[in-house]
Write a protein that binds this DNA or RNA. Structure first.
Lengths: 229, 229
DNA sequence: TGTCTTAGTGTCGCTCATACACTAAACTGG
DNA sequence: CCAGTTTAGTGTATGAGCGACACTAAGACA
């Protein structure tokens, strides 16, 4: 036990709420705990912060070690510091949330953790520690932020149809949107770039594919115009 | 050195960005450091988290110890974890921001810290550590949040005039607002309660005093109507 | 060729945001 | 008490954008 301090110190961890979108649902990535406490329960991927890495580096490292995911959109969420949130000892956790799309990012059979799997948000298992609260906080943040910052595109494939985009917003905001008004609005905003490609392998009229126009969005921001769905 | 751990642990602190409003300006509360590093420099009030208190309790305790402030509006801001943010050792800081009004809350001569003083946001001294970055983050948060959550009232006295309220928003948002449109909007929103009192001791026509109507705001939220300035 | 499924499109009414200027009231100082 | 100063308080007209709403087009398939 070579590390000694004058005063007691809480342990410091990071935890990640990873949201993913497929055709059916908005999902969250969980891992099954291989050790006590909460052995066998599902939990958010995460782990201890090392003293030679930033908080974000710790979050990215744990995410890759436990789920194989890398190069994802990642933002700090909130820091949870309840006294009894870990039964072993005092642990403070800096929580992050990530957005990925399930086509581009395949989850590998995890190495560190027992197993990783996607769960629909309305069909969740009981979570370890205070992870249900962290997840709830992340959902609120996502709902609030997606309307005025274009982070939703992180959940879509690089090329997407307007219907896919609309479904994405509907799943996050949990309400129906009007198709014509939605298209009018997002096309009028000028952050979508139309491609000359259409959907492949669909059993009906194929929809046109669009991509998010990063540069146009940055121009908007610079001119003080703000994105809003 | 009685506290020993298997792995090295960063130190954990809280820091508070306290915003205050007087007739002239939006201000922030700083303390002068009495010890190295950055001895003599101005810094945000804050200190180490104890293992038997939550993060919020730590923030409130430090705030009272160093500035005498208590019972203030306080919300978590962001957690800063840069590797070199403290020259002595690795320190992670959970930052908070507070809103107070300078009439009700008098700052006492601080006990722990050297001295506490209010600084206008556009006339700041050089700050210790990464506190300038924390303060900048807090200003952005305040600007973003004040428009759609009625936290601005925390900066005003209990009874206030519409002009005071308008000035508050103008200082935070850093742009001029139209007087007639502002009044039309905030009165139409129904979260202000008109009192039968007027300003005292002013050298011109006295303005009517209003108060924030908490219950009406909660009713709005419950009905899904949202506050916006 | 008919059926099925999803893509794609325009208008109208209304609300709300914005731009804009004068009178009323209270105090001050001579 | 009068003139001057300062801030309070008020209404309208215009335009933009939001929301409600339904049908035709295209392609796959049997």
């Amino acid at each position: 036990m070579p590390f000694r301090y004058e005063h007691p110190r809480p342990a410091l961890t990071v935890d990640c709420v990873v949201f993913g979108l497929d055709d059916a649902d908005l999902k969250v990535l969980l891992i099954q705990r291989g050790a006590a406490p909460f052995k066998g329960n599902w939990a958010l991927p995460g782990g201890f912060v090392r003293v030679d890495e930033t908080l974000e580096e710790a979050a990215r490292r744990e995410l890759e070690e436990e789920t194989g995911l890398r190069n994802v959109f990642l933002e700090q969420l909130y820091t949870f510091g309840g006294i009894q949130r870990d039964p072993r000892e005092r642990v403070i956790s800096v929580a992050w949330y990530a957005l990925v799309n399930l086509r581009d990012h395949k989850v590998q059979a995890a190495t560190d953790a027992g197993e990783a799997a996607w769960f629909s948000l309305d069909d969740l298992p009981t979570l370890a520690f205070d992870h249900a609260e962290i997840l709830e906080t992340a959902q609120q943040r996502l709902r609030g932020k997606v309307r005025y910052v274009p982070i939703g595109f992180e959940l879509l494939p690089r090329l997407f149809t307007l219907t896919q985009m609309q479904r994405m917003y509907e799943k996050i905001l949990d309400r129906a949107l009007d198709k014509r008004n939605f298209r009018k609005k997002v096309l009028g905003m000028g952050v979508l770039e139309e491609t000359d490609q259409v959907q492949q392998d669909v059993a009906h009229r194929a929809a046109r594919l669009y991509r998010f126009h990063e540069a146009a969005y940055k121009r908007m921001v610079k001119h003080g115009i703000h994105f809003e769905i």
